[in-house]
Every structure is written in structure tokens, then in C-alpha cells.
Design a protein around this nucleic acid. Structure first.
Lengths: 340, 340
DNA sequence: TCTTGGCACTCCTGTAAGTCGAGTGCCAGT
DNA sequence: ACTGGCACTCGACTTACAGGAGTGCCAAGA
């Protein structure tokens, strides 16, 4: 049996009321609070159907109804329009991000802002190196056998690593290395780096080869393998809103998941262009997060995407509001990056 | 009335049992589990005195006793010897830190290690810039009006900031700036930097002065004012061990405090040489942490201290074990830094 | 003077029973 | 197809009661 308009309207009302009150919602309260134009008995019949279809359920036999993950999914897909942000929120975003002085600063401000606006846990991925280009590579001699490698990407991101050289090297040698490395890699996409780095080794004179090989291996390790690792997190205290009711009684698994950067990157980092992705409860592959929902999207200058950001909260969240905020923040951050 | 040896022994037994079982401990259970050589009635008399002196209290009239903050304090100061670490723990520390490749890596590994060993929340401060010296300053031209300032400290810490120049500048000019800045600051303590930076501005030729002033202000801002800001955090999931019993029912305030870097720096960063500092419950100035205890110490190569590290947990924690672990980890990290 | 056994007392914990009320499902009537 | 009515279910909350852990105090003993 398919769901007619009124049944969908009932589902929407249930979701909205439950999100607002955090209490199972009954048929009587529903007709009182929403203008459905029918009696509680009718609503009960609709509820019975919705329950049979798996969109709502009763915590116990004589309580009201609560949306299931499938119910939230239907709500998000078909029953909600994205709320426009209030002028106050727009102003808050602008003011908050305006003073940023630095990529680090941008990321930190963004993640705090997102946590504050959505009142949930916010995650922001640093611009992914695999989507960046090399702006400049710097080699700073530390001692005769040690060099600090500093990579500056066009996104403003800076990575550094200490390189242990196999043999003592003069500062002229280092300058020479620096020139060669920059000539080969500057302006190149990091994703294209591996063959170029290999070429650097192949092209270098025999006597410099071991040194270059050493540098090359660190380069690859830093720029490619460890590339997407960084992210910022804020708002974990928001997990405790709504008592222990959300997250089925224990924050433990959620906090554990939030400590694993790999997990967060999986959640936030896999973004398709101009889509806001919503994962509700069971839709999360991570077991620890089966009681949580994640709203994520990509950001970047213009239409390109250099990283992801999003929020995590209980399945019982204000999806329209959250989606709107996440999108808006992503757009502002993208604009900010475009200016540099 | 002063506390004789047996009363202290009773207090120790109460603390140890309560830490182990997390349940109020009564007189009968106490004489059964510890060889006190006296009857429960005697222990009860001692308990009455200990309670009057404020070292223990009863949650309700007919429950066992629980240590107060003052009781833990006395226990830590006079009743516990620091446990030696097990060989397994020593090995774990060595293995965990051995693979570190980088200062960032050292800090991340350390904080995870500390969280894992103590099963509590761990905090590690990056080597404080105010206690470091400048190894090298690098200026990387980004565009004609933008330069990336990279500072490398002797502790391995690297800071970078984008500098907007007031006027277009050639790369020769930048090289010149770099030379001057390094000549003045390389090898100097960061704490001594402000007058030197000022001197740089005063000494520069009139036509270069505005540029130098601009650079100088960013230098000061980055190196001095924002200096001690960075730290790493791990193990927040450990807060949920022991149910909601610890932290008087709500993790909220604790999680909030952990999000404030300023607060954490206050807790971890204020270290005196070769002391392990223990703050128990009310002894914390931060209101949100009045139900928590903090064990912190300094670390650094040799006898010098470049930063702080520590753990935070419920007042009901294994102090001797925690103190031992924190000290040991700090020493290993110090040794590691000394090698660089 | 310190220690100890005895004893009455307090008060938390757990169980059982009973009431209340919200909410439901179903059915007959419109 | 919708509605009002009604019996039913079941969790939430109260009360009552028994059990037990733990205490404080006291008088007697070392």
C-alpha cells in the first residue's frame, strides 16, 4: 500500500514533534498541535500503517510513536525543505570567519562555529593534500645530516618533516636540492607527485642519488601517504545535551569513534561535488555510530572541493536546520579560501 | 587530636578499596580485606575520628565511608609510595615512542600512550615556544605582496604564518629580509625576542621600514603571544568508564573544560622543575573540574623543561599508578627530545 | 586508656501490589 | 472513508514492607 499525502503529513508531524520534545508523540497531541483536519482515531489508523511500513515504532505498547531511521530518511528526502538561515546566523558566520589570519585559524574557527550553530559535534577536514598543488618546497638545513622539509600547498596548508640525510651535506648542496625539487614539483598536483619524485631520483647524478632517494622517500611519505590525515573537532560537550537518552544510554562508543581520525575521515572526507550527504543511524557503516547521524558536505574555492566538513549528532536531530547550517558554513569557508 | 598510625592505615585501606570497588567501604569489609589486627568496632571508632577531621564521609547514614578530597590529598602526600612500572609497561612506552618521526608524531604518540596506560584523559602540551630558541626563520614568497613566515625552533616545533606585505616586494628583498631576521634572531631564546624584533625595525633603512614593521608585528604575534597555544588531547572516551557515577552525574562540564585550550594550558602548562603536581577535586581552580583530579608534570631534554603533560580523571583514581606512569612517560619523552 | 562484643537504630535496596493515565486497537455508526 | 466510543495494555509513580549493611554507643574486659 502506498502512503497518501495525509500519512506523509502525519509522519512529518511526528518527526517534528519528537525532535522538539524528545518524547514519544501520541495521536491526540498530534491533532492538537498540527492542523491535520481529522480526528485522533484517523491519525491512529495512519500511524498503524506507518508503523507497518517501518517508518515509526512504539517504544512500548502504550506509548506514543517515535520515528525509525527509515522514518527520518523519508522525512529528509521528501518531507522537509531546507530552512533559510536567519540574518543573525549569517552575520554570526561572517563575523566569526572574518578575522581568520591563517589556514589553521580558518579551520579552527570553522569547526567551533559549526559546533556552536548546530549545537552538535563538528568536524572539519583540512584541505586535502591529494586535491592540492605544490606551491613551494623549502629545505632548511638543521645540521650537516638533517634537513627540515617544508611543503606549502596552494590551499595554504603547510606540512613539514625532518629528513635524516645518509651523508653530510653542505648548505650549497641543500640549495641545489631545493632548486631541483622545486623545478620538478612546484605547481604540480600532489596526486601526480609520485612519478615526478621518482624521476627526480632517476635524473640525479650518481653521487647525489642516495641523498635524493632519501629525500624522495620522505616526500612521498609526507605528501601522499599521510596526506589527508588532519582534521579538527569541536563540540563534544554537545553530546551530553538531551541527557543519556540519545545514543542509547552510552556516549562511550561515540566518543571512541570520534578519537579515530580514520573513522572521521571516512565520514567527512568522502564527498561528492555539491551534495550534502546525510547518514542516519544504521546507514553508518561504523558500528559505534549506529545511534548517530552525520551531515557532511564538501567545501572549497569556487566549485572545486578541497575537503569535507560536517556535524555528528543524535538521529533525533533537526535535519533541515542542520543541513542548512552545514551548507552555509561550507560555502562561506569556500569563499574565504577563494580569496587567497 | 592527631591521627595515629593505625588511623592513617585505615584511611589508606579505605582509599585503596574505594578506588578498586567504587563502592563505599564499611568497617567489616575493611578488617576482612586488610590485616589491621583489630576488630570492626575499633575501626569504626577510627572512622568516626577520620570523618570528624574531614578525610572521609558517608554518602548516607548507613552506608560505608568514602574518601573526601582532603582524604585523597593526605593519601597522596603521606600514605602512598609511587609504584614501580612493570617491565611490560616500560616496554610498551619504548616501543610506542620509538617509531616517532617528527615532533608532531612524538606528541600524538605520547598523548595516545598516556591515555591508554592510565585509562584516563591525556593532555600533552607542545614544547612551549617561550622556553625554546629560534633555530631558523624562513621567508617563502607566495606572491609579490605575500610571504609565508616559517619558524623552526630548537625543540623541533614549527610555526608558520602568512604575512601580508604593505608594498610589492621582490624576491631579492625577501632574501635580504630573511638574512637580517636570521642574523638577529637565530639562536636566541624566544622569550628574549621582543626587544630584538624592535631593534630590527629601528635598524632597517627608512624605505624598508614599513615592510619590516609589518613582518615584525606578525613575528611578535606568532612567536610570543600565540606561543604556548598548542596541545594534544586523547582518551576522552575513558571519561565514561565507571558509568555516570564519577563526575557527579554529568560529563558535560568536564567535556566543556576539555574544549577550552586556555583551561588545559593552565592545568598542564604551569609546571615547576622536577615536580609532579596533583590537583584533587576542589583544588582545581576551574569550577567545571571540581569533580576531577589532574596529575601533571613537566618534560624536556635533560633537566630543562620545555612543556607539560598530564592526565585528568575522576578524583577516585589510582594515584600511585597514575603518578608513576605520568612521570615515566615524561622522562621517556624528554630523552627522545634530547636525542634531536 | 584502649579495645571489643553486643545491640538498637538508621536508611538504602529490592520486591510486590495498587492506582493512574496516556495511548492504543477495534468496531459500529455515519 | 472518517469518527466516536470503549475496553485494554502497560509503563510510571506511589505505598508498604522485609531484608540487610553499616553505624553509634555503651558497658565490660585487657
Amino acid at each position: 500500500m502506498s502512503l497518501d499525502d495525509r500519512k506523509l503529513e502525519v509522519l512529518r508531524a511526528i518527526v517534528e514533534d519528537y525532535v522538539a520534545t524528545q518524547e514519544p508523540v501520541g495521536s491526540k497531541a498530534l491533532v492538537e498541535r498540527h492542523q491535520l483536519g481529522v480526528s485522533p482515531a484517523t491519525v491512529r489508523n495512519d500511524m498503524a500503517v506507518l508503523e507497518e511500513e517501518g517508518y515509526i515504532r512504539q517504544p512500548h505498547t502504550s506509548a506514543g510513536r517515535v520515528p525509525t531511521d527509515a522514518g527520518y530518511r523519508l522525512f529528509v528526502d521528501r518531507l522537509s525543505r531546507v530552512k533559510a538561515l536567519s540574518p543573525a546566523e549569517r552575520r554570526a558566520i561572517e563575523r566569526f570567519l572574518a578575522g581568520a589570519v591563517d589556514l589553521d585559524d580558518v579551520v579552527h574557527r570553522t569547526v567551533r562555529l559549526l559546533a556552536q550553530l548546530t549545537r552538535q559535534v563538528a568536524v572539519v577536514q583540512y584541505p586535502s593534500l591529494s586535491r592540492s598543488s605544490v606551491r613551494h618546497l623549502e629545505l632548511v638545513p638543521i645540521s650537516t645530516t638533517r634537513v627540515m622539509l617544508v611543503m606549502i600547498a596552494d590551499t595554504g596548508r603547510v606540512e613539514q618533516r625532518l629528513v635524516e640525510l645518509p651523508a653530510p651535506t653542505t648548505s650549497d648542496d641543500v640549495l641545489d636540492l631545493r632548486r631541483k625539487v622545486n623545478a620538478k614539483l612546484a605547481g604540480q598536483k600532489l596526486a601526480d607527485a609520485p612519478p615526478l619524485v621518482q624521476a627526480l631520483v632517476d635524473e640525479s647524478a650518481p653521487e647525489a642519488r642516495t641523498t635524493m632517494a632519501c629525500l624522495a622517500s620522505v616526500l612521498l611519505e609526507t605528501l601522499v601517504e599521510r596526506s589527508d590525515e588532519r582534521l579538527a573537532l569541536a563540540g563534544t560537550a554537545n553530546l551530553t545535551r538531551g541527557g543519556v537518552l540519545d545514543f542509547q544510554g552510552s556516549l562511550r562508543p561515540v566518543l571512541e569513534a570520534l578519537e579515530e581520525e580514520v573513522i572521521l575521515l571516512k565520514l567527512i572526507g568522502e564527498v561528492e561535488p555539491s551534495t550534502t550527504r546525510v547518514r542516519i543511524g544504521d546507514e553508518n557503516e561504523i558500528d559505534n555510530l549506529r545511534a548517530a547521524s552525520v551531515v557532511s558536505t564538501g567545501y572549497g574555492p569556487g566549485a572545486t572541493i578541497v575537503g569535507g566538513l560536517g556535524v555528528l549528532g543524535p538521529t533525533r536531530m533537526d535535519y533541515p536546520g542542520t543541513i542548512a547550517t552545514v551548507r552555509a558554513v561550507a560555502r562561506y569557508v569556500g569563499d574565504l579560501l577563494a580569496q587567497n
